[in-house]
Design a binder for these strands. Structure first.
Length: 318
DNA sequence: ATCGTTGCCTGAGGGC
DNA sequence: TGCCCTCAGGCAACGA
């Protein structure tokens, strides 16, 4: 795939299917695979480049660092590297400061050099002048816009503003990052077994706890529990060592597989270059309530656990 | 310490 | 057609 930064900064390249709506499935959120895919795709447009100017929307709770300080501190900084911790993206800047981004539920990080951009709300369509058909124009949801001396700009767009952006000074730490548990890609059965001891909450709730495993969200929690054969409402403390091993293995497998296929994109997730992830086609339970289990044929059920839609197969999961 | 609840936000979709 | 209502949910803060 062509790195986003190599695509010409022009209308033509953003033309094809640039603006599109959703497909009608329930809202997923960017989880570890989507954030990792975003990281990989936005990296070429960010790393090695020096920020010249920063444009933001008005101050709001989206900004854990006030816009005025963001603009002041980011201007002139060069992006040295881009890391991911769980669902957080961390841009390391020269001088030692770090720009931290969380995509929340509807966050989109992409560059104007992307080959196409699938925007989340239809209102953005109205922002497109006819002569700029297909080319992204920063709108009211575009909370952060990074301009460089030349070449593509980088946008952080978030319709619902559940995402967050903050700037850490040299050596400064963040409770948000500090609280994160082990990255879910490296989850082991032993870690999971230890973390579940003495915990009476549903195993699904525990999987969503970012201080234990960082990166698992609603979709992959449901999918991993399916593959491990564990019902989401089981008390965490009741899982056996063997089940924890199976669950850790399932978590790693679904996350890795999703990264391979470009991340889920049922509706809200949008790759910076607009390409769609295909993992949605490999879902066994998520958003399949009432449909037949692909493995045993029983009807997939939907319940609410930890205030979140939760899907499982009563035939396959015990 | 752990657990459950609340609020932040806005678009989509259903019902009438 | 269009309005009103509900739902979706990551995360931190809060109260029990």
């Amino acid at each position: 795939m062509l790195p986003a930064a190599e695509a010409p900064h022009g209308v033509e390249d953003t033309h094809d299917g640039a603006i599109a709506g959703g497909s009608g499935y329930p809202l997923p959120m960017p989880e570890l695979p989507e954030v990792e895919v975003t990281r990989l795709r936005i990296e070429p447009a960010l790393v090695g480049r020096r920020i010249r100017r920063v444009v933001t929307t008005p101050d709001s709770y989206f900004f854990l660092t006030r816009p005025a300080r963001l603009k002041r501190s980011l201007a002139g900084r060069r992006v040295e590297s881009l890391d991911r911790h769980g669902k957080y993206l961390v841009a390391n800047l020269d001088g030692g400061s770090r720009l931290v981004v969380h995509l929340g539920m509807t966050g989109q990080l992409f560059s104007s050099g992307a080959t196409s951009v699938r925007l989340l709300s239809a209102t953005a369509r109205a922002a497109l002048a006819p002569e700029e058909q297909g080319r992204f124009v920063p709108d009211a949801h575009t909370h952060l816009r990074l301009c460089f001396a030349s070449g593509p700009e980088v946008y952080l767009r978030d319709v619902r503003k559940f995402g967050k952006v903050l700037l850490l000074g040299p050596g400064e730490t963040s409770p948000r990052l500090g609280r994160l548990g082990v990255d879910a890609l490296g989850a082991t059965g032993e870690q999971l077994f230890r973390a579940t001891r003495g915990r009476r909450v549903a195993i699904k709730s525990l999987l969503l706890d970012q201080s234990i495993l960082a990166g698992v969200g609603n979709i992959y929690a449901d999918e991993a529990l399916f593959h491990a054969g564990v019902r989401p409402r089981r008390a965490a403390s009741r899982l056996t060592q063997r089940e924890c091993a199976a669950l850790a293995q399932a978590i790693r497998a679904v996350l890795e597989r999703s990264i391979e296929t470009g991340g889920s994109s049922i509706r809200d997730y949008v790759a910076p270059d607009g390409s769609d992830g295909a993992y949605q086609d490999e879902r066994f339970v998520y958003a399949r309530a009432g449909e037949s289990c692909l493995r045993c044929g029983e009807k997939v059920r939907r319940v609410v656990v930890a205030q979140r839609g939760t899907h499982y197969c009563p035939g396959c999961q015990k």
